[in-house]
Each structure stands twice: as C-alpha cells, then as structure tokens.
C-alpha cells in the first residue's frame, strides 16, 4: 500500500512559448503510515508534485499510482484511488465553494456516501480538530472569514473525509503560533491513531524538523535528498542554503552558540533538543 511515482516528468503548456518544465524525473514511494515533509525553493515543483500524487495532473512522462491503481487509467477506474487521498491546497480559498462552512465540510463525507448522521458527526469532529467553534462558524460564509479561519476550514473539509493519505500544501501559512501548534497536534494524532500517511509541503524548516520522519528536498524539479530530517539538516547546511532553503531556527541558534564555544552537538535540530542539551550543560558547568 503506497503512492509510487516513477520517473515523473511534467511540463506546463508544452509546445507553447510559455512551456515550463516543472518536474524532471522524480521517483519516490510514500508508504502507508509515513510522515514526510517536502521542502524546496519557490517554484521548485512541490505543488506540481503533489498534484501528480493525487492524479490531478497527468505526468508528461512516467507513471504514478496509488495502492497499485495506475492514475493514468480512466476517471471511473481511479475513483477509488482518489478517495484515499485528501489534499489541502496551498491557497485554501481555491478549495472553498459552498454557501456555509458547514456545507463546505459536509460535501466530502456526503460524496463518499456517508449517512446524514455520520456526515454531521464528521463535520463537528473536523471543526473541533481545527479549532473552529461550531456555533460561531458553522453557518458563516467561507469567503468572509479571516485568512487563518479560511485555511482551517479548508483543512477541516479534508480531515472530514479521513483520507488514507493526507497531503498538506503549506497548511500552516497564515496560522498564528497557537493555531499552528494545535493543528500539528491533531495531525500527529491522526497519523499515530489512524495510521494516516502525512505529506507536508512546507517552507517552515522547524516544522519539517519537528514532525517529519522523512524529508524530501526538491530543487528545480528534481529530488535532491530523501533521508531523515536530522541527517539532512545536520549534514547539508551549505547545500540547503545554496538551493534557497535553510536549517531550522534551533539549528541556527545552536550554530551561534557553538561559535561562542558552547559545545552543542551538530545533530540538534529542534528547540526541545536544544533546551535539553543546554539544561544539562549549564548544570554540569555549574558543578565545575
């Protein structure tokens, strides 16, 4: 059970003066239960890549499949595969369409054939998961919400379908620190309890370091690295900077401390790890 991409190439508007190569031979497999972060400079091909996973774009070359179903087959045959994948798009307003928040979230579960009771439960659960108060927001128009509220609504709509593979394109852009933390707590829970595979596209290196088990780095349409975040952030700081990326804030802070003579290990990439190290270090130093 997996999403597999084999030698995917993709060109937008091929054969026109506006042709733009977006993917150049990407091969990768996302297993059920993976938690993957995908990072890359703007325009590197991340959004294009996830649309290949969801069968929303057909590759110019190569093959994409979900749980063994080839996504180049006819619409009817890939419907089952589509049902397993939920995508939260980069701009949530592109995804919202209904008159009320409630209807917007209910659309997915209804479409999957859930009963009205089940649908109602799914809507309420999803709203609670993203921290949108039911009484305040259920009847609001999606298009008159604040940026962060819209994003949470779009996420709720996808969560309500309980997809096997949840693809999130910059889900935390526009969320304040608390909403961001709550959101990731929910995602980690869905990942752990339901074994939902998570594919997180992000420009936030801290999130990639903290939550993902596996990090994919894409540069100009090619897969550059595929390894655990710790390995990539500790080893390839310079290379990441060269492709427009960076190390997490904690790693940057660790580097500043190291330059001062604090012996912070090279593989510290999250704030919690840095805090733990400093606590022991300061105490040890106090004893000397």
């Amino acid at each position: 059970m997996a999403i597999t991409l084999e030698q995917i190439h993709y060109t937008y508007s091929p054969g026109t003066p506006f042709a733009r190569v977006a993917l150049q031979g990407v091969t990768l497999t996302i297993e059920k239960g993976d938690f993957v972060a995908l990072i890359g400079h703007t325009g590197s091909g991340k959004s294009t890549l996830i649309q290949q996973m969801g069968g929303l774009l057909q590759p110019s070359e190569g093959k994409a499949s979900v749980d063994g179903i080839d996504l180049s087959r006819k619409e009817k045959e890939i419907k089952a595969a589509r049902g397993k994948i939920g995508i939260v798009f980069q701009y949530p307003e592109h995804q919202l369409f209904a008159e009320t928040a409630y209807e917007d979230i209910a659309f997915g579960p209804r479409n999957l054939g859930r009963s009205p009771e089940e649908t109602d439960r799914a809507v309420r659960r999803a709203m609670a998961q993203v921290g949108l108060d039911f009484d305040t927001f259920a009847q609001r128009s999606p298009f008159r919400l604040s940026g962060g509220q819209m994003r949470r609504l779009a996420i709720a709509g996808v969560l309500a379908m309980e997809p096997a593979y949840l693809i999130l394109d910059e889900p935390s852009a526009g969320l304040d620190p608390r909403s961001r933390r709550l959101f990731f707590e929910q995602i980690v829970k869905s990942h752990k309890q339901q074994g939902m595979a998570i594919i997180l596209v992000t420009h936030n290196m801290d999130e990639a370091a903290r939550y993902a088990q596996r990090l994919l780095v894409i540069n100009e349409g090619k897969l550059l690295y595929d390894a655990p975040p710790r390995e990539i952030f500790a080893k390839y700081q310079k290379e990441l900077e060269e492709v427009g990326l960076a190390v997490p804030a904690a790693a940057r802070l660790a580097a500043v401390l190291r330059a001062r003579g604090v012996p912070v290990p090279a593989d510290i990439i999250t704030e919690a790890e840095l805090e733990k190290f400093l606590l022991t270090w300061v105490k040890k130093r106090g004893k000397k």
Partner: peptide
C-alpha cells in the same frame, strides 16, 4: 499583510 507566508527561507 503576511507577505512572506508562501516564500522559501531565501525569499523571506
């Protein structure tokens, strides 16, 4: 208004 929300670290 949140001008860097969608930018990579270098863009930011």
């Amino acid at each position: 208004d949140e001008p860097t929300a969608m930018l990579d670290p270098r863009g930011r």
